[in-house]
C-alpha cells in the first residue's frame, strides 16, 4: 500500500491519499495522469490492467479501491 501511496503522491504531491475519495471529494485524476498512474503501477507491481477495467471509475475512486484492484490482478 505504501508503494501505491508513493506513486499517487508522485502525481499529486499535496493530496492526502489515505483520506481522499473521489466520490466525496470530487474527481481528481486527469486523463494524462491516468496514463502515468497505470504505467507506474504496472511497472511497480508487475501486473497488467485489462482494458475492460479502464472504463470504470469505481475501481479508481480512492487509494484503497486501487489497492484492492492491484491485489486482485496479482492473484490472477
Amino acid at each position: 500500500m505504501d508503494d501505491l501511496l508513493a506513486i499517487l503522491n508522485d502525481l499529486y504531491p499535496d493530496v492526502d491519499f489515505t483520506a481522499y475519495d473521489a466520490r466525496v471529494d470530487g474527481p481528481l485524476i486527469q486523463s494524462m495522469e491516468m496514463v502515468e498512474l497505470i504505467t507506474a503501477i504496472e511497472e511497480k507491481f508487475d501486473v497488467e490492467f485489462p482494458p475492460s477495467l479502464m472504463g470504470d471509475p469505481d475501481h479508481f475512486h480512492s487509494a484503497a479501491a486501487i489497492w484492492e484492484l492491484i491485489r486482485r490482478l496479482e492473484d490472477e
Binding site: P27, I29, Q30, S31, M34, P51, S52, M54, G55, D56, P57, F60
Partner: peptide
C-alpha cells in the same frame, strides 16, 4: 470524466 476512463469514452 470519460477522458480519464477511456473505455467509457469509446462506448
Amino acid at each position: 470524466q470519460y477522458f480519464s476512463f477511456p473505455l467509457k469514452l469509446i462506448e
